[in-house]
Computed example of a mutant assay.
Amino acid sequence: MFKQFTFTLNNTNKIIAPSSIGIGSVYFKMEMRSTAENYNETLKNNLIKLFEQGKGVIHIDCAANYNVYPEFKDALKVNTERQLKKREELWVTDKFDTFLGTFPDPITHVNFVIKELNLNYLDLMLIHYPVVPAKNISLSIAEIWAQMETLKKEGKVKNIGVSNFSVKDLEKLKETAVIKPVVNQIEWNPYFMNQTLGIYDYCQENNILIEAYSPLYPITLSSSGEDVSEEGKNFNNYIDLLAFKYEITNSEVLLRYTIQMNVLPVTTSSNIERVLSNHNFNNDRPDLRLADEEVKKITELGKEHAQVSKYEKFVKYFESLLDN
């Protein structure tokens, strides 16, 4: 029976889980900005196929500093022409780029995107990073957040949150924020459950939903042959066992685990069939649950493994800026 899975945010709005596809990703753009020369036809076609075959609401996670708006725009145009998905059947997340300074401020950013993509509003807008190294942005994080609050009040953005924020960053934001962030999108998986010290527990205790990017990284490491550790072998053997028991894929085991840890997985792949499988699986079997002891065992095995970060250089860079 089709029943789409959602999380309830701290403002009572509901968000679709898992994300259907992350399109601010090196899976589609090896360069940091989109140009006519590196337009990705595969991304456009993948989005169209997702609109055609994805059940229910499609959750698309975007990021300004990878600038995939040209492909997204063209896919949305086809979506409208073919009447595939209504606006309310699309959940669009975007992120304001403080790193490269793709836009000078969130208001300019959002006004451009909703006009360019003909969306009228964004479902979720995040501050992508907790620091502002971009030379063309003269705003502090507090001032950026104030603009995000304005966009929400105007209805141009339905929900606002942050990304890559530590406990310290969130506590500092709380000093001036009127509206509480609904989401903190961070790197999270069983091998890397705290991108920064204590962030998982803090978000759980303060009702800020963690959105996990790289939630399937342990499987990626194993399948690529990069992880030959005994701890990695033990972890993957257990995931294999659960996949066999529930007659699902290893990826689906970890997606279900992530959701049961009260974390929303943000997935991506250049393989559209894998994207559709992950999306439709969670909608076809929304009531499937791993046993509590199985969730506990995955957590324990993950903690036994050395912490592994796919984006360690970024995390260390942000921390170095905060220390200066």
Results as ranks from 00 to 15, higher is better:
residue 292 D to S: 15
residue 277 S to T: 06
residue 221 L to M: 13
residue 230 E to Y: 05
residue 60 I to Y: 02
residue 109 H to P: 07
residue 163 S to Q: 10
residue 257 Y to P: 00
residue 304 E to L: 14
residue 319 E to K: 06
residue 281 F to M: 04
residue 278 N to E: 01
residue 10 N to T: 10
residue 117 L to E: 01
residue 145 W to T: 03
residue 31 E to A: 14
residue 9 L to F: 04
residue 15 I to H: 02
residue 116 E to W: 01
residue 45 N to V: 07
residue 217 Y to K: 06
residue 80 T to F: 08
residue 43 L to T: 00
residue 209 L to H: 06
residue 276 L to T: 02
residue 305 H to M: 07
residue 87 R to V: 04
residue 305 H to N: 12
residue 206 N to Q: 13
residue 272 I to S: 07
residue 8 T to N: 07
residue 263 V to P: 02
residue 217 Y to H: 12
residue 27 Y to Q: 12
residue 221 L to E: 10
residue 65 N to K: 10
residue 284 D to L: 12
residue 139 L to M: 10
residue 68 V to D: 04
residue 265 P to R: 02
residue 208 I to H: 11
residue 174 K to Y: 09
residue 267 T to E: 08
residue 295 V to P: 10
residue 286 P to E: 06
residue 309 S to Q: 12
residue 6 T to C: 13
residue 242 L to R: 03
residue 172 K to N: 15
residue 242 L to H: 06
residue 305 H to K: 14
residue 230 E to N: 10
residue 9 L to T: 02
residue 214 S to Q: 11
residue 319 E to P: 01
residue 254 L to P: 00
residue 258 T to H: 01
residue 320 S to W: 03
residue 144 I to L: 09
residue 125 M to G: 11
residue 189 N to G: 05
residue 148 M to A: 07
residue 190 P to C: 09
residue 61 D to L: 03
residue 127 I to P: 09
residue 186 I to S: 02
residue 250 N to R: 15
residue 253 V to F: 00
residue 178 V to E: 11
residue 89 E to A: 13
residue 232 G to Y: 12
residue 244 F to C: 06
residue 144 I to F: 03
residue 145 W to S: 06
residue 169 D to V: 13
residue 312 E to R: 12
residue 178 V to R: 07
residue 8 T to G: 02
residue 243 A to S: 13
residue 30 M to N: 14
residue 66 Y to V: 14
residue 23 I to D: 00
residue 127 I to F: 08
residue 159 N to W: 07
residue 28 F to W: 10
residue 137 I to Y: 09
residue 198 G to R: 09
residue 228 V to M: 11
residue 288 L to E: 00
residue 187 E to K: 06
residue 129 Y to W: 11
residue 25 S to G: 08
residue 155 G to Q: 10
residue 28 F to M: 07
residue 246 Y to P: 00
residue 62 C to R: 00
residue 93 T to C: 13
residue 236 N to L: 04
residue 182 V to E: 12
residue 19 S to P: 01
